[in-house]
């Protein structure tokens, strides 16, 4: 079996962000493997632990630093990685990213492509669906469990819905977007980290993919990010303590005279 996991490197959301003139200040940020993608890697490795012949490749589109996220996945246990890196990607939206991934996958053989259900930085959750559409293969979102049936060449996906969980069977090849509720990604061992240096890290450029430069970056995008800003600070609420009868009077007074909603 052959699985791919699409990875993205994102700013560590535990850090404090700075926005200046509508733009995120990137200099002081630490970058990490997107947590949802890490869950997709982990789930693939759980299957690989049970089905030893599973070959797991990672693919990441992004800047030079992105190789750090790929090395993390390799240290966790993936077999090899593809790093699609090109200056032409700057400003890509989900649509342009899906163009690149479509071009990457068109001559690849695979049973399943896993991806995170969204990225922690932009929270769009679009790339997996767009890629499935472009590759014309089945797609299920928000997976919390996977069971592979090798003989039937299918995968049974447990997905989390609003009201409960659904089980959906997909035939290979397919795309599954993964929730971080699916598992707890393993911490790479020291041995894994040292071995990850020796695993293949294949560089891929826009030209290698046969893509025109206007199919990627801003010109290949269907949306434009105009500016970023923090949510407006809200005034802290008031807390009242005391006897119920007093509290009710205070509340009615506030709602009538201050909030003027009664």
């Amino acid at each position: 079996m052959k699985f791919f996991v699409c990875c993205k490197q994102v700013p560590d959301v535990a850090m404090a962000f700075q926005i200046k003139d509508g733009e995120l200040q990137k200099d002081d940020l630490n970058y990490v493997l997107n947590a949802y993608d890490a869950s997709a890697v982990e789930e693939s490795l759980v299957i690989k632990d049970a089905v030893s012949e599973l070959d797991l490749s990672l693919v990441l589109m992004g800047a030079e630093k992105g190789k750090e996220a790929l090395r993390k996945g390799l240290a966790m246990g993936a077999n090899d990685a593809f790093h699609i890196e090109d200056d032409a990607f700057e400003g890509s939206d989900s649509h342009a990213a899906a163009n690149v991934l479509e071009a990457f996958f068109k001559d690849k053989e695979y049973d399943a492509i896993l991806c995170g259900k969204q990225s922690q930085d932009m929270d769009m959750g679009l790339t997996g669906g767009l890629l499935a559409e472009k590759l014309n293969i089945p797609y299920v979102t928000n997976a919390v469990g996977l069971e592979v049936n090798e003989e039937a060449k299918s995968i049974l996906v447990t997905r989390q819905g609003d009201a409960g969980q659904e089980k959906v069977e997909l035939s290979f090849p397919c795309i599954v977007s993964c929730s971080n509720d699916m598992n707890e990604p393993r911490i790479p061992s020291l041995r894994g980290i040292m071995q990850s240096k020796k695993k293949p890290m294949n560089k891929v450029s826009v030209a290698d993919l046969g893509l025109a430069t206007d199919a990627v970056g801003k010109s290949g995008s269907k949306s434009t990010l105009l500016s970023m800003d923090f949510p407006k600070a809200r005034k802290a609420g008031e807390k009242f303590e005391g006897e119920a009868s007093e509290l009710v009077s205070t509340l009615i007074d506030k709602l009538t005279n201050e909030a003027k909603v009664l």
Partner: peptide, 14 residues
């Protein structure tokens, strides 16, 4: 180095 950062991050996570 990249190795040193990975080892630090791994032990930090652990």
């Amino acid at each position: 180095t990249e190795d040193q950062k990975m080892i630090r991050d791994m032990v930090r996570d652990f």
